[in-house]
Design a protein around this nucleic acid. Structure first.
Length: 602
RNA sequence: GCCGACGUAGCUCAGUGGUAGAGCAGCCGAUUCGUAAUCGGCAGGUCGAGGGUUCAAAUCCCCCCGUCGGCUCCA
């Protein structure tokens, strides 16, 4: 295996434009991170010569490599790997690329089952080989010229990872590292990580007294009064939209006979995600989704084309079994409710409905001060129901609606559900993990299974199409994302406590209670901090609880019929008349603003 | 579920075979103060559950529960 490839510096075209697929990585960084993975494998093989090595790609903030090792890695091993990597980098060994015939490569990697499997999966006749020092790897991707050219790195963790992500295949040990071009950028990244931990919704949920989870109910959060306030405000907000956008809210059962789940197909396809209860005479399933119940409701009445689109909204509580290892604060839970709705409409109404959903989504993301989500459009999979004409129609209806709304989106072939194409919206959490929030899914299947019909203009009976849609998605998950994006400093309309009255001395408590009563009359959520603490301590505590406005009252204020206003983040705003404060807060609440500025754009 | 780490007071954490600790929070008392922590006292733990080793276990071993990170960003 010899034949030299062209020198690295002359652009080797990268497989599938690999570096563009990963967020925030230019080609140099891609090469550096990829090279670092090779250097790490070199180090691990020095320690464990018998190790089997699998794959080691560059990733968003660094790189990883998967190994099959004789024993679990310890933190000491990581230090050892780190040291050996730095030695290799100091030695500045050149990366030498070549190609070899598959047969030669198979002979070379005879003791490396994972490499052999990779070779089998490569369509070309020749495979890439990359060597530096004594380490040789199967590799078709570009590197830096030599080990000394990589950036600043730090090994982060060891984790289990199934070979090829398949839980039926062996579990390997994955070492994660981060790498940036310079020491400063690495330090900044590590600093940002620490900052991110401070705004982790699980931490803030406890600190701000919003929610907690207890081992007594894994994956099922308890919402404390303050968290419940926010949760209900989110629901109120959606109800407000429903009035304007023509939705009808409904209430449907929690537990259904398995007959329903058999008819809907959930029993066959989703059973492992459901909870079942044995009644005295039959088996019942706790609902993981509202859609079958809504279909029963739709079918309970006769429908005319004049009623369509018919929009049923439901905040019903859903239960889904999630594997214990996947539970995560509010973002992956077993018990939750959604701002769920199902729209029954004609095929030609799909486009208009989607455009309306985008408008609702924009209002919502703006009101909650979230940024722009990432959109994806998932197209027909191989295994599907419905005719090609129907799919053509449905896919272009979704695509056209997005284009008409000026939305940038990514089309993903083959990722749609078997029952229809869908649009998903994703937001990052504070650690850069992406979660699905909103979803708009077409469904040709359930109307079929439940034999849903409407009377058309010509008197014939037609089948409606169904749109599953949620804008906040799981309210639990939404709240988790909301907490992290706001760092707990919610816009005023959402803050569980909107103002705290701070009497300077005991003799000012009565006045504060009077002001608080006046504020409550206008619908504000107000507390009076009447503890025997100093004003400074009360301010500090209110700041830590991220209360938007602190109203301080002492002798001077009482005399003037005023309060001294302090805004969260804005400092001391000086004395204001009580009625002026009410006016300011009313405007801010109505505009969904915050003390730090107006509502964000979505 | 699987791999690894972790689980000590309400919270954050110290304690690695020999009498369970600190800070904050809580309670009581004093202080009545002008924009991010007033002072003093008191109380608070079957050391996640169960089993084992040992004269002796928070500490070592086994098992269970839970939490945290990870489990295709595909040579």
């Amino acid at each position: 295996m010899v034949a030299e490839l062209p020198p690295i510096a002359t652009e080797i075209e990268m497989n599938q434009d690999a570096s563009n697929q990963i967020k925030g990585m230019n080609e140099l960084l891609y090469r550096q991170r990829h090279s670092a993975a090779h250097i790490m494998a070199e180090a691990v093989l020095e320690i464990f010569p018998e190790a089997k090595y699998a794959i080691g790609p560059p990733i968003e903030n660094g790189f990883y490599y998967d190994f099959d090792l004789p024993r679990p890695l310890t933190p000491d091993d990581l230090n050892d790997v780190d040291k050996r990597m730095r030695a290799s980098i100091r030695a500045d060994k050149p990366f030498v690329k070549s190609e070899s015939a598959k047969a030669e490569a198979r002979a070379f990697f005879a003791e490396q089952p994972y490499k052999l499997e990779l070779i089998d999966g490569i369509p070309d006749e020749k495979v890439g080989i990359c060597k530096h020092g004594n380490f040789t790897d199967l590799c078709g991707y570009p590197h830096v010229e030599s080990t000394g050219k990589v950036g600043a790195f730090k090994l982060m963790s060891v984790a289990g990872a199934y070979w090829r992500g398949d839980e039926h295949r062996p579990m390997l040990q994955r070492i994660y590292g981060v790498m940036f071009p310079t020491d400063d950028e690495l330090a900044e990244y590590l600093h940002n990580l620490e900052e991110a931990e401070r705004r982790d919704h699980r931490r803030l949920g406890k600190e701000l007294e919003l929610f907690f989870v207890d081992p007594i109910a894994p994956g099922s959060p308890f919402f404390l009064p303050k968290g419940t306030t926010i949760y209900n405000l989110a629901i109120d907000f959606m109800r407000g939209l429903y009035k304007r956008y023509g939705y009808q809210e409904v209430i449907t059962p929690q537990i259904f006979s398995v007959d329903l789940w058999k008819r809907s197909g959930h029993y066959d396809n989703y059973r492992e995600g459901m909870y079942f209860i044995q009644d005295e005479d039959r088996e019942l399933g706790v609902k993981p989704m509202n859609c079958p119940g809504h279909c029963i409701m739709y079918a309970s009445q006769v429908h005319s084309y004049r009623e369509l689109p018919l929009r049923y909204a439901d905040f019903g509580r859903l239960h889904r079994f999630e594997r214990s290892g996947t539970l995560h604060g509010l973002t992956r839970v077993r018990s939750f409710s959604q701002d769920d709705a199902h729209i029954y409409c004609r095929l030609d109404q799909i486009g208009g409905e989607i455009q309306t959903l985008v408008a609702m989504m924009r209002e919502t993301y703006s009101a909650f001060h979230l940024g722009q989500p990432r959109f994806s459009l998932s197209l027909r999979p191989d295994k599907r129901i419905g005719s090609d004409e129907t799919w053509d129609m449905a896919e272009s209806a979704l695509r056209d609606a997005l284009v008409a709304s000026g939305i940038a989106f990514e089309e993903i072939a083959n990722e749609g559900a078997f029952y229809g194409p869908k649009i998903d919206l994703f937001m990052d959490d504070v650690l850069g993990r992406e979660w699905q929030i909103s979803t708009f899914q077409l469904d040709f299947n359930l109307p079929e299974r439940f034999d849903l019909e409407y009377a058309a203009e010509d008197g014939s009976l037609q089948r409606p199409v169904m749109i599953h849609r949620a804008i906040l998605g799981s309210l639990e998950r939404f709240m988790g994302i909301l907490i992290e994006h706001s760092a707990g400093a919610f816009p005023t309309w959402l803050a569980p406590v909107q103002t705290t009255l701070i009497p300077i001395a005991d003799r000012h408590v009565e006045y504060c209670e009077g002001v608080a009563a006046r504020l409550r009359e206008t619908g504000l959520r107000v507390e009076v901090d009447a503890r025997g603490e100093r004003m400074q301590a009360k301010i500090r505590d209110a700041q830590l609880m991220k209360v938007p406005y602190m109203l301080v009252a002492g002798d001077r204020d009482i005399e003037a019929g005023a309060v001294s206003v302090r805004a969260r983040g804005g400092g001391d705003l000086g004395p204001m008349a009580v009625e002026a404060v009410i006016e300011r807060l009313a405007v801010e609440v109505a505009s969904k603003g915050s003390p730090e500025g107006a509502a964000g754009e979505a």
